[in-house]
Nucleic acid binder design. Sequence first.
RNA 1: CGGGGCGUAGCGCAGCCUGGUAGCGCGCACGGUUCGGGACCGUGAAGUCGGAGGUUCAAAUCCUCUCGCCCCGACCA
Length: 565
Amino acid sequence: MRRSKALVPTLREDPADAEALSHRLMLRAGFVRQLAAGVYVYLPLGQRVLDKINAIIREEMNAIGGQEITMPVLHPAEIWRESGRWDAIGDEMFRLKDRYGRDMCLGMTHEEVVAWLAAREIRSYRDLPQIWYQIQTKERDEARPRSGVLRTREFLMKDSYTLDPDPEALDRSYAAHEGAYRKIFDRCGLRYHVVQSDPGMMGGLGSHEFMAPSAAGEDEIARCAGCGYAANVELARGVPAAPAPPAWARAEVATPGCRTIAEVSAFLAVDPRLTVKSLLYVAEAAGPVLVLVRGDHALHERKLARALGEEVRPAHPDEVREVLGAPVGSIGPVGARVPVLADEALRTGTYVVGANREGHHLTGVAAGRDFECRFADLHTVTPGEACARCGQPLAVERVIEIGNIFKLGTKYSVPLKATYLDEAGRERPIVMGSYGIGPARIAATAVEQGSDADGIVWPSTIAPYHVYIVVVGPHHEAQVAAAEAIYAACWSATPPLEALLDDRDERPGVKFKDADLLGIPVRVTVGNAFVKEGLVEVRARKTRQEARVAMDKVVEAARVLSALE
RNA sequence: CGGGGCGUAGCGCAGCCUGGUAGCGCGCACGGUUCGGGACCGUGAAGUCGGAGGUUCAAAUCCUCUCGCCCCGACCA
């Protein structure tokens, strides 16, 4: 491709609406344009990157026996009603009616369609196992699209589904996917961790997420350098260091005007770790429950929901007063006439708690002695807490979720009647797994993890082109002829080196700046050195290592440099 | 859904408080001089000031409503 003919609209300045690094660079370098909130056009370079990523995904999925299919984006409501998700899912699903008034929706995932298909086509244990996958558009009406291409309302997803006769076979399919995913992300040049994740309220037999460290990430994981334990913070358990126990008796103290942990601990001159944060939540079925975490900790609502087995919401201030007889800043577990759920960290020690009397707190209160409660892991793990397995300190990292693998079990096969006959002629539900990868997230993550002050630095495996050829003097016939020859040589090499020729009538500086911004691994410059000595410059984008070589050595030199990553 | 911010030329922004003929930089077109890290000079094209309603002799500017976009939080099967 020649730059003079290509749609590569680079921007000199940062677009105002782009915050995340990858968003800014992908806009500036002309890879994408935004049509609406969370809806993007992929321009030629962005499309080429997606194509590269998808090709890698296909190779690795095919290698574990995956069979590519394409399922519709438009779904009848019926299958979603059968699985129960038509009602379980809220505003995140795009819903519409066809001309006859029938309910339809846009697919946010495809478990229902897979189960529908399996119900029709799988009859015998001899038909199992199966791995079906697609690379297909997903539609989700995200409450808050953000960070450019990282969280969008319409996005490409590689989703695969495994069909197995029993949980043991599912384990094998699951392990095969984990292996394939590692190969995919390795080949795409990403740094990532595989972590345990929350299988969700609906049960499930286990799940992992592939998490790539990046400041633009929306999730956090805790990792132990000692034993390798790694988990999403919505799940991660840490053991916080216990504060030195003070010698205080149980007593009520006045804390006028103190509403927050910071105010109470400052007023009483007490370490915040010796205070308890009391939070009233309302569970859908069970009603109000008083939740306790240590003053310096944050409650993780997912953990709370998991501990209670149902969804929860914070109580309104007037509900707090009604239930506990005190305002939010003064509530506590002593004398509370609601169930109390306390974080594990509060099993031992004595603490300052709200007195359920406005402007008063109690000191020296111990769980189990001064009030009854149930314990659960509720607090969000903080950096430095001890690993629950080996005791080494945990690190907490911000990450982008680039893939997940999930053991579904029979959650969809039972309601959609996807069954098979086993060796004994018994009808049994198919055991399913589902596995997702976001190609656009791979691209954005590569930008996040690889760019520098001058622009993007693509891993060569997913770069839109391998070589960027700059003609310094586009009016200099010999230079143009040489550049054209190099361009042709790149494309006709085996395997081809995909080249983009910058033949525009621009000053050299503009071309160099653009070359850096686009992040193509190797730049070839035809300029003064060619005129004087017949040599061209071959330079690596990432290392900026440069060599001057003769015309007939360009392809070889470019290959060497692009391999030096 | 809660909180905050922004919509003025293709892009980035000023002008708004204090109403009075819409501006700057980049980009774009043409001419000239340049030509190895986003050149310079000259000329020029280009804007329903997001939209609707209102106040006023007069609205980009003040008021009301509305649409869109961004950020923080919540949510994310």
